[in-house]
Computed example of a mutant assay.
Amino acid sequence: MTPTTAPRLRPFTQVDVFTAEPYRGNPLAVVLDAEDLDADAMQRFANWTNLSEATFLLPPTHPDADYRVRIFTGSEEFPFAGHPTLGSAHAWLEAGGAPLRDGILVQECAAGLVRVKRDGGRLAFAAPPLTRSGPVAETDLARIAAGLRMPREALLDASWLVNGPEWIGVLLDSSEQVLAIRPDYAAMAGLKVGVIGPHPAGSEVGFEVRTFIPGDAAAEDPVTGSFNAGAAQWLIGAGKAPESYLAAQGTMLGRAGRVYIETTGDDVWVGGNSMSCIEGFVLL
């Protein structure tokens, strides 16, 4: 399709999210000025980056929002996603964005308004409400067990955790079980599966997380904010996780993802470090 406007250079940054070590988290492409770009142009660029997501920052349309973001994977637009939220907020602030309120910025996305706060040197977003939760059909659990190459009884609990991406969360007995998974993507085709298991008592990290995305380009996501948000809401609400904990993700991919979960009142906050690793301009 012919672009609606002539391409021009736009400020750009690539942010590593959920890590304090460069190139050990989940990278995100952020186009800081996406005015007059149409969805087709955004989708083409997101596909070209070969990253899990790219975001495009726009002026807000809601009076309470500081900025608006559109979030694209290589093949579709998401109403919300976690590491794009933190990475976009980091890039917006670093580019000189000034929140309307002290200590809190408000991101407008297709899922609504998402609050982001400073948490020491980190940023954290308030987990949005789940749009689908609850039991998973036994037929799906059987497919997931086959995909994880483990007996059905090893899946201690499971729940739909939809807050944008359509995750199914699975609780295992231990971090060791999580790290031992060698997924059969074909067996769980069509399902986005996140797996979480506790580390031994006394460990610095409370839970180990892995997320699997079957499809034509089957992949394990390095660090997944949306899944960690849903998993925290589910497990804390069920009394299976403490109100605050640290989750590790990306271990099997050579990453050092760290997700900080904290409950304050009715809010579950999902936080992590971010750092800009590439800055410049893109022609769009």
Rank of each mutant, 00 (worst) to 15 (best):
G169H: 01
A219F: 09
G194Y: 01
D184C: 00
G197E: 04
A218W: 07
I181T: 11
V170R: 06
G202V: 05
V178P: 02
L171F: 08
A217L: 06
W160T: 01
L156V: 09
I196M: 12
A187Q: 08
R182A: 15
G202M: 10
V209W: 01
E204R: 13
I213S: 13
A219R: 14
R152N: 08
R152C: 11
L156H: 13
L161T: 10
R182T: 14
W160G: 03
L179Y: 06
I196T: 14
G206N: 02
P198G: 09
D173K: 14
E220V: 00
E166G: 05
I196D: 02
D173R: 15
I181C: 11
V162Y: 04
P198R: 03
P214V: 05
G169N: 02
F212Y: 15
V195A: 09
A217G: 04
V178T: 03
G194P: 02
V193W: 01
D173I: 00
L161S: 06
G202Q: 03
S203V: 08
A187K: 06
L156Q: 13
A219V: 14
W160S: 10
P198E: 05
V195T: 12
S159D: 11
L155S: 05
A158N: 08
Q177H: 12
G169W: 00
A158T: 11
E176D: 14
P200D: 03
P222A: 11
